[in-house]
Write a protein that binds this DNA or RNA. Structure first.
Length: 274
DNA sequence: CACTATGTTGGTTG
DNA sequence: TCAACCAACATAGT
Protein backbone atom coordinates (compact mmCIF):
# COMPACT_ATOMS: atom_id res chain seq x y z
CA UNK A 1 0.00 0.00 0.00
CA UNK A 2 2.19 2.81 1.14
CA UNK A 3 5.20 4.66 -0.19
CA UNK A 4 7.53 6.85 1.83
CA UNK A 5 5.05 9.67 2.62
CA UNK A 6 2.39 7.25 3.83
CA UNK A 7 4.87 5.26 5.94
CA UNK A 8 6.22 8.49 7.44
CA UNK A 9 2.66 9.50 8.37
CA UNK A 10 1.93 6.09 9.84
CA UNK A 11 5.14 6.29 11.87
CA UNK A 12 4.22 9.70 13.28
CA UNK A 13 0.66 8.81 14.23
CA UNK A 14 1.50 5.35 15.52
CA UNK A 15 4.30 6.69 17.69
CA UNK A 16 1.81 8.72 19.72
CA UNK A 17 -0.30 5.62 20.31
CA UNK A 18 2.24 2.99 21.36
CA UNK A 19 5.41 4.67 22.61
CA UNK A 20 6.53 3.46 26.04
CA UNK A 21 4.09 0.54 25.99
CA UNK A 22 5.34 -2.89 27.03
CA UNK A 23 4.54 -6.10 25.16
CA UNK A 24 2.82 -8.72 27.30
CA UNK A 25 1.88 -11.18 24.56
CA UNK A 26 2.12 -11.73 20.81
CA UNK A 27 -0.44 -13.63 18.74
CA UNK A 28 0.51 -14.72 15.24
CA UNK A 29 -2.38 -15.75 12.99
CA UNK A 30 -0.44 -15.95 9.72
CA UNK A 31 3.13 -17.15 10.38
CA UNK A 32 4.41 -16.38 6.87
CA UNK A 33 4.43 -12.65 7.74
CA UNK A 34 7.29 -13.36 10.19
CA UNK A 35 10.52 -13.72 8.22
CA UNK A 36 13.03 -13.61 11.08
CA UNK A 37 13.60 -15.42 13.27
CA UNK A 38 12.33 -18.34 11.21
CA UNK A 39 10.65 -19.84 14.26
CA UNK A 40 7.58 -17.79 15.19
CA UNK A 41 7.66 -19.09 18.76
CA UNK A 42 11.12 -17.55 19.11
CA UNK A 43 9.80 -14.30 17.60
CA UNK A 44 7.12 -14.22 20.29
CA UNK A 45 9.45 -15.12 23.16
CA UNK A 46 11.99 -12.46 22.15
CA UNK A 47 9.29 -9.79 22.21
CA UNK A 48 7.75 -10.61 25.60
CA UNK A 49 8.56 -7.88 28.11
CA UNK A 50 10.04 -5.54 25.49
CA UNK A 51 8.96 -1.90 25.51
CA UNK A 52 8.58 0.30 22.42
CA UNK A 53 11.14 3.08 22.88
CA UNK A 54 10.60 4.75 19.51
CA UNK A 55 9.52 4.19 15.91
CA UNK A 56 11.69 5.10 12.93
CA UNK A 57 11.37 4.86 9.14
CA UNK A 58 13.82 3.95 6.36
CA UNK A 59 12.47 4.03 2.83
CA UNK A 60 9.13 2.23 3.07
CA UNK A 61 10.13 0.29 6.20
CA UNK A 62 8.92 0.94 9.74
CA UNK A 63 11.47 0.26 12.49
CA UNK A 64 10.13 -0.35 15.98
CA UNK A 65 12.96 0.33 18.41
CA UNK A 66 12.59 -1.92 21.48
CA UNK A 67 14.78 -2.41 24.55
CA UNK A 68 16.93 -5.14 23.03
CA UNK A 69 15.55 -5.62 19.51
CA UNK A 70 14.50 -3.76 16.38
CA UNK A 71 11.34 -4.92 14.62
CA UNK A 72 11.56 -4.10 10.90
CA UNK A 73 8.13 -4.06 9.26
CA UNK A 74 7.19 -3.64 5.59
CA UNK A 75 3.55 -3.04 4.70
CA UNK A 76 3.88 -4.00 1.03
CA UNK A 77 0.54 -3.38 -0.71
CA UNK A 78 -2.11 -3.30 1.99
CA UNK A 79 -0.53 -3.64 5.44
CA UNK A 80 -1.98 -1.48 8.23
CA UNK A 81 -1.37 -0.94 11.94
CA UNK A 82 -4.06 0.09 14.38
CA UNK A 83 -4.41 0.24 18.16
CA UNK A 84 -7.41 -1.22 19.98
CA UNK A 85 -8.71 -2.14 23.39
CA UNK A 86 -8.14 -5.84 23.99
CA UNK A 87 -11.86 -6.59 24.17
CA UNK A 88 -12.61 -5.01 20.78
CA UNK A 89 -13.54 -7.51 18.09
CA UNK A 90 -10.58 -8.49 15.90
CA UNK A 91 -11.17 -7.60 12.26
CA UNK A 92 -10.87 -9.99 9.34
CA UNK A 93 -7.33 -10.07 7.89
CA UNK A 94 -5.65 -9.24 11.22
CA UNK A 95 -2.55 -11.45 11.28
CA UNK A 96 -0.34 -10.32 14.13
CA UNK A 97 -1.43 -8.92 17.50
CA UNK A 98 0.89 -7.32 20.05
CA UNK A 99 -0.87 -7.15 23.41
CA UNK A 100 0.46 -4.53 25.83
CA UNK A 101 0.50 -4.62 29.62
CA UNK A 102 -2.15 -1.83 29.69
CA UNK A 103 -4.58 -4.19 27.89
CA UNK A 104 -4.45 -2.33 24.60
CA UNK A 105 -3.28 -4.03 21.41
CA UNK A 106 -1.29 -3.10 18.33
CA UNK A 107 -2.82 -5.07 15.46
CA UNK A 108 -1.32 -5.73 12.04
CA UNK A 109 -3.95 -6.12 9.33
CA UNK A 110 -3.07 -7.06 5.75
CA UNK A 111 -5.70 -8.18 3.24
CA UNK A 112 -3.16 -9.60 0.83
CA UNK A 113 -0.75 -11.04 3.42
CA UNK A 114 2.25 -9.63 1.50
CA UNK A 115 3.73 -7.67 4.41
CA UNK A 116 6.88 -8.80 6.26
CA UNK A 117 8.38 -8.55 9.75
CA UNK A 118 12.05 -9.11 10.64
CA UNK A 119 13.23 -9.04 14.24
CA UNK A 120 16.91 -8.25 14.91
CA UNK A 121 19.00 -7.86 18.02
CA UNK A 122 19.37 -4.10 18.24
CA UNK A 123 22.08 -2.79 15.94
CA UNK A 124 22.08 -5.72 13.52
CA UNK A 125 19.16 -4.53 11.40
CA UNK A 126 21.14 -2.15 9.20
CA UNK A 127 23.76 -4.64 8.05
CA UNK A 128 21.41 -7.45 7.07
CA UNK A 129 18.60 -8.01 4.61
CA UNK A 130 16.24 -6.31 4.00
CA UNK A 131 17.73 -2.95 5.06
CA UNK A 132 21.33 -3.51 4.00
CA UNK A 133 20.72 -3.02 0.28
CA UNK A 134 18.55 0.05 0.68
CA UNK A 135 19.67 3.22 -1.09
CA UNK A 136 19.43 6.66 0.55
CA UNK A 137 16.09 8.31 1.24
CA UNK A 138 15.39 11.08 -1.33
CA UNK A 139 16.16 13.93 1.07
CA UNK A 140 19.19 12.19 2.60
CA UNK A 141 22.42 14.09 1.97
CA UNK A 142 23.84 10.91 0.41
CA UNK A 143 21.36 11.25 -2.46
CA UNK A 144 23.60 13.65 -4.36
CA UNK A 145 23.36 14.50 -8.04
CA UNK A 146 26.71 12.84 -8.71
CA UNK A 147 25.63 9.62 -6.98
CA UNK A 148 22.32 9.55 -8.87
CA UNK A 149 23.87 10.40 -12.23
CA UNK A 150 26.43 7.60 -11.84
CA UNK A 151 23.64 5.11 -11.05
CA UNK A 152 21.74 6.17 -14.18
CA UNK A 153 24.74 5.92 -16.46
CA UNK A 154 25.59 2.38 -15.37
CA UNK A 155 22.38 0.68 -16.40
CA UNK A 156 20.36 0.09 -19.52
CA UNK A 157 17.05 0.07 -17.72
CA UNK A 158 14.22 2.54 -18.21
CA UNK A 159 14.18 5.52 -15.83
CA UNK A 160 10.89 4.33 -14.32
CA UNK A 161 12.45 0.97 -13.38
CA UNK A 162 15.46 2.70 -11.82
CA UNK A 163 13.31 5.01 -9.70
CA UNK A 164 11.32 2.03 -8.45
CA UNK A 165 14.58 0.27 -7.49
CA UNK A 166 14.90 0.72 -3.72
CA UNK A 167 18.66 0.15 -3.83
CA UNK A 168 19.08 3.34 -5.88
CA UNK A 169 16.78 5.61 -3.88
CA UNK A 170 14.48 4.38 -1.13
CA UNK A 171 10.83 5.22 -0.71
CA UNK A 172 9.46 5.96 -4.18
CA UNK A 173 6.74 3.64 -5.50
CA UNK A 174 4.39 3.70 -8.44
CA UNK A 175 2.51 6.88 -7.52
CA UNK A 176 5.47 9.09 -6.71
CA UNK A 177 7.60 7.85 -9.60
CA UNK A 178 4.87 8.83 -12.07
CA UNK A 179 4.41 12.21 -10.35
CA UNK A 180 8.14 12.88 -10.18
CA UNK A 181 8.67 12.11 -13.87
CA UNK A 182 5.74 14.32 -14.87
CA UNK A 183 7.07 17.25 -12.85
CA UNK A 184 10.53 16.70 -14.31
CA UNK A 185 9.10 16.58 -17.85
CA UNK A 186 10.66 13.19 -18.56
CA UNK A 187 8.95 10.17 -20.14
CA UNK A 188 9.11 7.01 -17.98
CA UNK A 189 10.15 5.08 -21.11
CA UNK A 190 13.43 6.99 -21.44
CA UNK A 191 16.50 4.80 -21.01
CA UNK A 192 18.26 5.99 -17.88
CA UNK A 193 21.64 6.23 -19.58
CA UNK A 194 20.31 8.64 -22.21
CA UNK A 195 19.44 11.28 -19.62
CA UNK A 196 21.59 14.40 -19.51
CA UNK A 197 22.98 15.68 -16.25
CA UNK A 198 20.47 18.51 -16.41
CA UNK A 199 17.57 16.09 -16.85
CA UNK A 200 18.95 13.93 -14.04
CA UNK A 201 19.10 16.99 -11.80
CA UNK A 202 15.47 17.79 -12.63
CA UNK A 203 14.35 14.27 -11.72
CA UNK A 204 16.33 14.34 -8.48
CA UNK A 205 15.01 17.71 -7.33
CA UNK A 206 11.42 16.85 -8.33
CA UNK A 207 11.64 13.55 -6.45
CA UNK A 208 12.75 15.39 -3.32
CA UNK A 209 10.10 18.11 -3.74
CA UNK A 210 7.28 15.65 -4.47
CA UNK A 211 8.09 13.41 -1.53
CA UNK A 212 8.57 16.34 0.83
CA UNK A 213 5.26 17.90 -0.20
CA UNK A 214 3.44 14.57 0.09
CA UNK A 215 4.82 14.05 3.60
CA UNK A 216 3.52 17.51 4.53
CA UNK A 217 0.05 16.52 3.25
CA UNK A 218 -0.02 13.24 5.18
CA UNK A 219 0.43 11.05 2.09
CA UNK A 220 -2.09 10.04 -0.57
CA UNK A 221 -5.32 8.17 0.06
CA UNK A 222 -6.01 6.33 -3.20
CA UNK A 223 -8.09 3.39 -2.07
CA UNK A 224 -7.80 2.09 1.45
CA UNK A 225 -4.93 3.97 3.04
CA UNK A 226 -5.58 5.75 6.32
CA UNK A 227 -3.00 6.52 8.98
CA UNK A 228 -3.05 4.76 12.33
CA UNK A 229 -5.51 7.30 13.72
CA UNK A 230 -7.90 6.57 10.84
CA UNK A 231 -7.31 9.81 8.94
CA UNK A 232 -6.86 10.05 5.19
CA UNK A 233 -3.92 11.68 3.46
CA UNK A 234 -4.54 14.71 1.28
CA UNK A 235 -1.85 14.54 -1.38
CA UNK A 236 -4.14 12.67 -3.79
CA UNK A 237 -5.72 16.07 -4.49
CA UNK A 238 -2.39 17.21 -5.93
CA UNK A 239 -1.73 14.28 -8.24
CA UNK A 240 -1.02 15.37 -11.82
CA UNK A 241 -0.93 12.00 -13.57
CA UNK A 242 -1.38 9.01 -11.23
CA UNK A 243 -4.97 7.79 -11.58
CA UNK A 244 -5.75 10.74 -13.88
CA UNK A 245 -6.06 8.73 -17.12
CA UNK A 246 -8.52 10.19 -19.66
CA UNK A 247 -8.53 13.47 -17.76
CA UNK A 248 -6.95 16.67 -19.05
CA UNK A 249 -3.40 17.46 -17.98
CA UNK A 250 -3.47 20.21 -15.35
CA UNK A 251 -0.64 21.98 -17.19
CA UNK A 252 -1.43 21.67 -20.91
CA UNK A 253 -4.94 20.21 -21.17
CA UNK A 254 -3.87 17.18 -23.22
CA UNK A 255 -5.35 13.85 -22.18
CA UNK A 256 -3.37 11.87 -19.59
CA UNK A 257 -2.76 8.38 -20.95
CA UNK A 258 -2.12 5.13 -19.12
CA UNK A 259 0.35 2.56 -20.40
CA UNK A 260 2.46 -0.29 -19.07
CA UNK A 261 6.12 0.46 -18.34
CA UNK A 262 8.52 -1.78 -16.42
CA UNK A 263 5.55 -4.04 -15.73
CA UNK A 264 3.59 -1.35 -13.90
CA UNK A 265 0.59 0.80 -14.76
CA UNK A 266 2.10 4.13 -15.78
CA UNK A 267 0.51 7.53 -16.28
CA UNK A 268 1.93 10.21 -18.56
CA UNK A 269 1.22 13.44 -20.38
CA UNK A 270 2.74 12.85 -23.82
CA UNK A 271 2.88 16.60 -24.43
CA UNK A 272 4.59 17.69 -21.20
CA UNK A 273 7.01 14.75 -20.90
CA UNK A 274 9.88 14.20 -23.38
C1' DC B 1 -18.87 -15.07 -14.84
C1' DA B 2 -14.11 -14.45 -16.22
C1' DC B 3 -10.59 -11.61 -16.54
C1' DT B 4 -7.71 -7.74 -15.08
C1' DA B 5 -5.75 -4.57 -12.12
C1' DT B 6 -3.86 -3.20 -7.54
C1' DG B 7 0.38 2.26 -3.44
C1' DT B 8 5.52 -4.23 -3.48
C1' DT B 9 9.36 -6.93 -3.88
C1' DG B 10 11.85 -11.41 -3.82
C1' DG B 11 13.03 -15.29 -6.49
C1' DT B 12 13.40 -17.65 -10.96
C1' DT B 13 14.35 -17.70 -15.81
C1' DG B 14 16.61 -16.54 -20.21
C1' DT C 1 24.70 -8.84 -14.51
C1' DC C 2 20.37 -7.65 -15.91
C1' DA C 3 15.74 -7.37 -17.31
C1' DA C 4 11.38 -9.78 -17.89
C1' DC C 5 8.26 -12.59 -15.63
C1' DC C 6 5.89 -14.75 -11.82
C1' DA C 7 4.43 -15.67 -7.18
C1' DA C 8 2.74 -14.40 -2.70
C1' DC C 9 -2.95 -13.15 -1.85
C1' DA C 10 -7.64 -10.96 -1.76
C1' DT C 11 -10.86 -7.89 -3.64
C1' DA C 12 -12.93 -4.42 -6.75
C1' DG C 13 -13.79 -3.04 -11.24
C1' DT C 14 -14.96 -4.01 -16.35
Amino acid sequence: MPELPEVETIKNTLKQLVIHKTIEDVTIQWPKIIKRPGDTAAFRMDLLGQSILNIHRRGKFLLFELDDYTLVSHLRMEGKYSVHQKEEKVKKHTHVIFTFTDQTELRYNDVRKFGTMHLFPKGMELTESPLNKLGPDPFDEAFTLDYFYQKLQHTNRLIKAVLLDQSVVAGLGNIYVDETLFKAGILPTRRADTLSKKETAAIRSQAIATITNAVAKGGSTIRSYVNSQGNMGMFQLELYVYGQENKPCKDCGCEIVKMKVAGRGTHVCLHCQK
